[in-house]
Amino acid sequence: MAPREYGQYDGVTRALELIGERWALLIVRDLLVGPRRNGELAAGLPRIPTNILAARLKELQAAGIIRRAPRSRIIIYELTPFGRELEPIVLALGAWGFKALGDPREEQVITPDSMTMALRSAFQARVAADLPATAYAARVGSAELLIRVDGSSLDVARGDGPADLAFAAGPDIRRLLSGELAPDRAIATGVVEVLRGSGDLLGRFAETFHLAA
């Protein structure tokens, strides 16, 4: 199916024609985290039909937003410079959508890439610049992330590793990020489980990552 046309001539209309089809912006979101193989994209978007993924990739390539690149006998997809210009837009859209997030439905999941982008949306670089360098090992749902903050620099990678604070949480971590729940209450109520390190560092995490509800 060809991408829809709206019959209007302006930048917003053209942007929607390029990335407004279903799943397209989520593919861009995941590629903002890093290059992905077809199977990795499918795993990160578990409800996307195979034919729709193929169609969206083809459309995004034709628009110059992504490209195929050979890497050690495999094909990966990555954003072009034009596609990477979408990063501040996607981060702002994530922060805006957070305000209307509400409670998760039973079938909804948190993926490593979606959580990575949520953390990038929530990152308060100016606040972090005045705090000591800190590493966090976070398990949010099934997503395991190693989060390193050093001044105004943020690095988020998949997996576990040495960290000043390791914690586990579910979707209710949004209550901590929004400021609805204080760090000590988040621990006391079981919203956040401290796995290792000092629970006091959860306050630093809450300062560093904040999204207004």
Rank of each mutant, 00 (worst) to 15 (best):
G34H: 04
G141S: 03
Y136E: 05
A92C: 06
P88C: 06
V149L: 02
D10M: 00
R56S: 02
F167G: 02
V33Q: 08
L165W: 04
I75L: 13
Q124C: 08
G64L: 01
A100C: 06
G11S: 13
L79P: 00
L41M: 01
Y9V: 12
V90T: 08
T116Q: 08
F209L: 08
A62M: 08
G83M: 03
I76L: 11
R204P: 06
E17P: 01
P3M: 02
L202V: 04
I65D: 00
M115N: 10
A169I: 04
A206N: 08
L165M: 05
T50W: 09
R29D: 15
R29C: 15
A186L: 02
R56K: 04
G102L: 02
I110K: 07
T80Y: 01
A137K: 13
L91K: 09
R67G: 07
E5C: 13
L131A: 08
I52S: 12
A15I: 06
H210Y: 15
I19W: 01
A54T: 14
R139D: 09
R120C: 12
E5Y: 09
R37L: 10
E106T: 14
H210N: 14
D10Q: 00
G197V: 04
P49L: 02
Y136G: 06
P49H: 01
Q108N: 13
E106Y: 15
N38I: 14
N51C: 05
M117R: 14
F82L: 09
V33S: 09
G179A: 03
A69M: 10
G7H: 01
A100H: 14
A62E: 13
A24H: 12
E17T: 00
D200V: 11
I76N: 07
A43M: 10
F209R: 07
G190W: 01
R4F: 12
A186I: 03
G170E: 09
L177C: 05
R204A: 10
R174D: 10
A135D: 13
P70E: 10
G83S: 04
Q61F: 07
A122G: 12
S114F: 13
Q108Y: 12
D184V: 10
L165C: 03
R71I: 14
E180Q: 11
A118E: 14
R56I: 04
L91I: 09
P81N: 02
G170Y: 06
E21N: 15
S152G: 09
I187P: 06
G34K: 01
A125C: 07
R47P: 07
L181E: 10
L18F: 00
R37P: 10
F82Y: 08
A166C: 05
L86E: 00
G39M: 13
R148A: 07
A43E: 14
G94K: 09
G7S: 00
N51P: 07
G179Q: 03
L101I: 13
A182Y: 05
A128F: 07
G203V: 10
P35M: 02
L131Q: 13
L79C: 00
S152H: 11
N38F: 15
F82A: 13
E40I: 04
A42F: 11
L145G: 03
V191S: 05
P88Q: 07
R73G: 12
P46F: 01
G199A: 06
V192F: 05
L211S: 11
D150R: 08
R120G: 12
P3S: 05
